[in-house]
Design a protein around this nucleic acid. Structure first.
Lengths: 345, 345
DNA sequence: GCGCAATTTGACAGCGCTGTCATTTCTGGC
DNA sequence: GCCAGAAATGACAGCGCTGTCAAATTGCGC
């Protein structure tokens, strides 16, 4: 049978309360007492009972990671980071997939919090921008941290995506591209706006004119990338480079280029955003922007735990990195027209 | 303040114990009493306290999903299925990434079980084949369920991967291919053996000779697929079709084919296994075999919960499906030699 | 209407820990 | 060596539920 706190107390010659103090890193325990207790814990291989602890302390030591994100690689990395941070602080993480567009969304989250007695929440895009939910959480006093929210006035973590997108466009321009297209992301995601803004910043920095025909709405999905690329490639003067707001859509662009008989990057340069594993597995490998998702998960969790303990967490800025790979190259000497030139030609 | 069980009991005019009986679906409660209690629960919006419940019942109502699998899409789907099943039965799931090759692996799992007071485990490949761990779990009497284990004598779920692989090879042969290569998976995964066996079954069914030069060891990674494909394509008489044991390696094959200037599927047919999202995002889209990962997660969890309740669960067989897409086509009239013919020719 | 077994319900203790607050021990200044 | 205040420790109750077992109620054959 497992040892209990009273057993440890007996072995160490103290009261159970003092053992509890040591285990919870409370102050006001003499160093020799602490050592004696830790030694007893070790010798008995004592493991505190989580349910007893949370019942008595009136806290669950449990946080939930809320998501409604179709990208498994993104979520898996964020998740690993969150787990890492929670483990380190003896917290548990639970996972909750949700439909953020459901009319009962806020209600579902409320139910989750009260059923599981959650100590806090980590919100990922697009949930991190759900204004109703954020307002309610503040009202209820539920601690939370956001990954990549539009509004930076809460605890969490963000990337300077606008600057990243700008740098990508500048890079394309440095390769000689003058007609650079952009496929925007899902309108519910803050990232879509930042990336579009960054695209415009980049054009401006390179003195390129903004052309609305070169900006097509996508939804972060592969299929929407295919459709948007077809639209752009059918223009009278199509772009020589397309910057998609994420990798899935960029893969769609490459797909559409292949379909049209274009060779990437000879006839068309393509780049994405996110650095998903897939971006290295397609031909040609995709030029993209790396987000440190795992770090971001860890940071968000740490800020949440700080908010739980100290009442408030901070908004931390994470670093991006351009990944220059095979899908971008020098602009063709003369712009090509649609599907007129391709590998089969 | 949240309602407690005593409040419900008072409103319904019964003892707390009877409320507990209703909430836990115990027998021997009169129907009208049950209804009265459910009504009281509803009117007070009562939510039982998980920690109190698990402390008193001496069970955590918590299972862990153990994984050491580099494929985020696979794990994410399994995970979603497990969550679905656990939610439905008022169980919680926790996630535990592990390094199955660590010498302290079994010890870590033991620690996890006793620290979290886990009621059971779900093991995914390659952990589901860790014989030491399985032996210890049986010794400790810890309920567990396996996803795709080599040994089918436990609770869990499997696919007839051998037959799936066989059908894929038969399909390739029906397209006229006579030299069909195979890239095997990671040797620690049971799936690698089944898929290889199925490959040999398929050859035999089509009266094709097994040629050891056409079978190259891979490790389920994209890079290992590239390397293996280069090896095979450099043969004096290279294959006209390559069946990789998973999609990541198949993507590697397509990459290597592009690198060698070969056109898929004109010069080389390629197929994979798993039907990852990536398989539809590369050009050409990948012929592969669909595994119902989400269903498999759900089934595994349900069998585990049955094992927890009733002492034993079953091994359930899930169904695969061939996905015929763009990366496979009719065999070339005359086999090509290595990189001698390509799009740039 | 009676007796006996089966069904339904309740009383009570206690799961293993921590919060509160009281008590004891230590520390430093005189 | 004494005292006030700070630091360290302990006694005790109780967090909210369920297991055990006893008590009350019901059903049924005669």
């Amino acid at each position: 049978m497992r040892a209990r706190i009273d057993d440890v107390a007996k072995v160490a010659g103290v009261s159970p309360k003092t053992v509890s103090r040591v285990l919870n890193n409370e102050r006001n325990v003499r160093e020799d007492t602490r050592q004696r207790i830790l030694e007893a814990v070790r010798s008995l291989d004592y493991r505190p009972h989580p349910s007893a602890r949370s019942l008595a302390a009136n806290r669950s030591f449990l946080v939930a990671l809320l998501y409604d994100n179709p990208s498994p690689s993104y979520m898996m990395e964020v998740q690993d980071g969150v787990l890492e941070a929670c483990d380190a602080q003896r917290y548990s993480m639970m996972l909750q997939p949700l439909d953020a567009t459901s009319p009962r969304f806020v209600e579902q989250v409320e139910k989750l919090i009260s059923e599981r007695r959650l100590d806090g929440l980590i919100l990922t895009p697009p949930i991190s921008d759900h204004v109703d939910l954020l307002a309610r959480l503040r009202e209820w006093g539920t601690p939370f941290a956001c990954v990549a929210p539009r509004d930076h006035s809460c605890a969490g973590v963000v990337l300077d995506e606008r600057r990243a997108a700008c740098e990508m466009v500048v890079h394309l321009a440095s390769l000689g591209h003058r007609r650079i297209g952009h496929i925007t992301g899902h309108p519910d995601h803050g990232a879509s706006g930042w990336r579009l803004d960054g695209y415009r910043d980049g054009l401006e920095r390179c003195s390129l004119r903004y052309d609305h025909r070169l900006v097509v709405q996508g939804h972060f999905s592969f299929d929407s990338g295919v459709v948007a690329a077809r639209t752009m490639l059918a223009l009278a003067s199509p772009p020589t480079a397309i910057f998609a707001a994420n990798d899935d859509m960029a893969a769609g662009v490459i797909w559409a280029a292949n379909e049209a008989g274009l060779l990437v990057p000879r006839d068309l340069s393509v780049c994405g955003f996110d650095d998903t594993p897939m971006s290295r597995q397609i031909w040609p490998s995709l030029t993209t922007i790396h987000q440190p998702c795992r770090d971001m998960g860890r940071i968000a969790a740490n800020q949440l735990l700080r908010a739980i303990r100290e009442g408030e967490g901070a908004m931390v800025y994470a670093k991006f990195a351009l990944c220059l790979r095979g899908s971008t190259g020098r602009a063709p000497d003369r712009p090509l027209r649609g599907a007129s030139a391709g590998r089969h030609g």
